[in-house]
Every structure is written in C-alpha cells, then in structure tokens.
Design a protein around this nucleic acid. Structure first.
Lengths: 274, 274
DNA sequence: TTGCTCCTCACGTCACGTGAGGTGGC
DNA sequence: TTGCTCCTCACGTCACGTGAGGTGGC
C-alpha cells in the first residue's frame, strides 16, 4: 500500500493499450471532462488511471467506432443502464436511416454512371393559370416528409370541407428548398380552391401565380426510389438544354387517386415552373 | 455572342445553387483541379462555369453525400461509364462492410449497457507447457480473417504431412494486435507438433513458451457474433480483477472438429496468457 | 547517471463554414 | 454612383495524429 495514491493505478501508456484508446485521445477526453484520470500528479502532471475506468474507456472506444460525436457520448454515459441502451438505439436508428438514404443514392448513381440512358422521361410543358391555394408550409427533413404531406393534405381538405369551399384542382407539393437528411425544405403542401376561405391555424391562403412549367409523369412506385431523382434530373436537364431558368420552387403534382392506384400506374408529375 | 467568352456561362452563385455545391466547395474543387471553371477572368479572378459542367458537379455532390473522399472521387470521375460504375460498387461494398461491423458492435453494446449480465462465462485457468509450433503469420483485416485462417491451417497441415511429422496438439490463432477494419493484426496461425520440421515458404517453426492462461469456452456460432466480444471482455475482466497482466498475445484455441460441429456446440476457447 | 515515459505546445489532416477586408461589374 | 457579387486570406470545426522540446521517475 502506498500513502499518496492507491496501488494499482496505471500510467497512460498501459491504460492506452488496455483500452485501445490513443494517448492523444485520452488527453483530449481528460481535457473535455469525458474521462478524467483517477489521479493526476500535481508536480509532474502525470495521469494515473484506475482499472475501474477501463469499462468507461472501452465504451467510449466502441461508441467512437460507431462515429458518435463526443458530446453525445458524454450525454449517453451519464444515463444509467436501460436509458443508455435506449439512447444508443435512438442514435443507431438515425445511422440506419442515413445509410438507407445512401443506399438508394448509390442505386441511382450506378444507373447514371452506366449511362443506361435512364428510363427515358417524356418531358412536356403546360401553362398553369393563376389560382388560389390553401397551403400548409413547414420545415421537414426527408424522414418526416411522407407523414407531413399526408397530415397536411388531410388538414387542408378538412378545412375546406368545414368552410363549405370546393377544391378546384389537384393538390401539389412545392419544395422551396432541398429536402434530405441535412436540409429541411421548406415544403409547402397546396390545394387549389375557388370561393373564399379564411386562414385557420397553420392553413394559409395565397395566390399561386400563373406560369409555364416543364413536367414529366411518374409512376406511383417511383415516389420513394432512385427513379424519383432520375425524374428530377430529366426535367432539370430539359430546362438546361433550352436555357429555361426555374422561377418558382419545383413541385410534385398529385393528380392521381393515390390510394387506389397500383405501383405501376402513372400517379403524379414532377414539375419545374419557368 | 461574345468575343472573350461564350454566352451562357454562369457565375459561381448560380452554378452553386444549380449544382447544390457551396461556393466554398466549388473554390476548393477548383484549387484541387477536381472541377475547374470553364473560364476564369484573368483580371477579376471571377469564375465562370458552363452548363455542361453541371453533370460533373452533380456527381461530385452525390459522391460526397456518400462520404467518398475527394481524391477517390477524382479517380472515379476519370473512368468512363461502366468502369466508374464498378468503382462506385467497390466503394459501396466497403461502406456496407463497415456498416455491418458497426451493426454487430451495436448489438454487443446494447447488451453491455443493459447490464443483462451477459451470457455468463465460465472462466478457468490452465497451464500450457512449452511446445514447438509451425506457424504462418500475416497482417490481415477482419474481412480477410476467416479466409486466411482456413488457408493457413490447410497449408500448415499439408506441410506437416509432407514431412511425415505429427501434429501434437490442437491448433490455435494468436492475435498479436487488434484485428478489425482499421487494424490488421498481425495474426499468427499455429499448429503444435513433435519431431523435426524444416521451415518452408511462409511456414515458420518456433517455440511457444510455457505459460498459464485464463480461458473461456465458446460455442461454434459465437465465432462471428457479438458473443465473441463478450467472451473477450469476460476473460479480460477476470484478469483485471485478479491483477493478471496479459503477457503474450490473446488467442483462440480451436479444439473442436470444426466442420462436424453444430452451431450450438462448444467449439473453441478464448484465452489470455499471463 | 542513463534511458524511458510522460508532459505541453504547436502544427497538420479533411472538407469544408464563416466572416473580414477589398475589388469588380452592371 | 450605388449596391451587389465576387475575390482572397485567415481562422474555426471535429477528433484526433505527429512531431518538437523539455521534465520527471525508476
């Protein structure tokens, strides 16, 4: 037994090899308060770690292998048992979601690189007159997008019904910004109507200006696959060739009776106003 | 038409929004030669991009979303069509492999965090006398590990047979360093023997010193699951409690007749010499 | 006393983001 | 001429890796 410090403390080198954490990492975790040595010699500054600290160190090492950021690791390790496990699950769900997105991006890119002249999209243009629209706009990431569209659509139609107002055209969704894991739109769900409607709650009323748009029709099943990107690309390429510049947000026009359509049936348009 | 530069070139801002690449990113890609503007005004330094550059920009953007490093993107984009697609596939296979590894790590961590006192390992010790071993040592990452062990085991036994020498004990594999995606051992496949054997090719002959070792017995199916880590952890924890320090590399002792065993049957030991 | 380990800066890496301060084009 | 866009540094971010130069412990 030793007076100044317990017997079985180890120097950083030994703790490093045992925990599979580099010396630099250990010093950083010390500085951040994530993993402080059991004892630090005030004279020399030498760090001494206890065997009991190995478990925490191991866990940090594993969580870093999962690429969890250090602040999040710190939070997680403050939770006890079951709660920590839940936090890990939540994190992992996020990682899995990102991974799935990447996987479908790869699918798309594969085809684009192969130049297998992708499904051939038929691009047309049309004139869309000015119309009044009831809309709900929100910032959502891609994972919440289907749920949001569903919900917003329902709310708007309910609002129209409650006011005895007629929908006068097919609903559409405007993307005012990119929507993926890192970008959250905004996204605006729109239903054209005639008559007079008071804005209620989240539901806004505004005029969507008249415009030309280039569009292509997509099958229902394309709504969540690499096909969708091809569609956007095809319309964008068409615009580019003709020197058209997109003036309003790109949109998806849901003219089909969604729930009754088979996956292979044409169901909606991708459109770029110009 | 303009004398100094073609008509439809865009400034960086427009190219940025169209390609979904930030201005900073575009300037970086320019500096790296990954995506150089079609024209740079020598007076002002203004960058002008052509519409035709959008495709390359888009692809870079997508590949970056897949977290492919810039030098690798540069290589890939130098390949034409099908080759580029193959390169993407190769990259994606790597990503998928890493992801699978992480997934099993999560499995393991879940249990460890829950403190569901993991399967309970029975740790024992034994004395292993000095023995001569024929070995093949190599640096391999975890993905090549099973193939390497299989091959090396085969080669060593073939060598013993050719020399009329008897194997005198069960084969084992020593891990002189961590083996995962980032670390490649070294790994040494060992077969004990008696008699005299000349080293041939990759096969070395050496003496494995006598030692005590702590070990636990694992089922065959544990060989590639989170269970394996629990086993290592359990033995390491046992050593720690008793203040034993690991003196030689950790090892897996394959005493079972591997091919004839069912997944649920005990098949090998995890051992730490001390 | 000799090495060896440890210490603290400081700078590098990767792919950008975020201003500061200044010039150029319509 | 006024803004607006563009330019080039320079520094920050994240989680470390890699020395440089110096001290402490056995």
């Amino acid at each position: 037994m030793n007076e100044t410090r317990p017997v079985d403390l180890m120097l950083i080198r030994e703790f490093s090899t045992r925990s599979r954490l580099s010396g630099k990492a250990l010093r950083l975790y010390d500085a951040l308060g994530l993993l402080e040595p059991a004892f630090v010699d005030p004279q020399s500054g030498y760090r001494y770690y206890s065997p009991g600290q190995l478990e925490r160190a191991q866990r940090i090492s594993y969580l870093r292998q999962l690429e969890m950021p250090l602040p999040r690791i710190a939070e997680l390790l403050e939770l006890e048992g079951a709660m920590a496990a839940r936090a890990l699950e939540a994190y992992w769900r996020e990682v899995e979601a990102l991974h799935r997105d990447k996987r479908s991006l790869v699918q798309y890119l594969e085809q684009a690189l192969e130049k297998k002249e992708i499904p051939m999209f038929n691009i047309e243009t049309r004139f869309v007159p000015e119309q009044k629209v009831a809309t709900i706009e929100r910032r959502v990431y891609v994972d919440k997008l289907p749920a949001f569209i569903d919900e917003a659509m329902g709310n708007i139609y309910a609002g129209l019904g409650a006011s005895g107002v007629q929908a006068s055209g097919v609903p559409f969704v405007i993307y005012h910004g990119k929507v993926d894991n890192d970008s959250d739109g905004p996204v605006e769900v729109c239903v054209p109507f005639t008559g007079t409607l008071e804005p209620v709650g989240e539901v806004r009323v505004r005029v969507e200006p008249a415009h030309e748009e280039a569009f292509t029709t997509m099958k229902k099943k394309a709504v969540d696959g690499p096909e969708l990107m091809h569609g956007y690309d095809a319309v964008a390429a068409w615009m580019l060739e003709r020197g058209r510049k997109c003036t309003l947000g790109s949109r998806e026009v849901y003219w089909g009776d969604w729930d009754k359509l088979a996956p292979e049936e044409p169901a909606f348009d991708i459109a770029y106003p110009f």
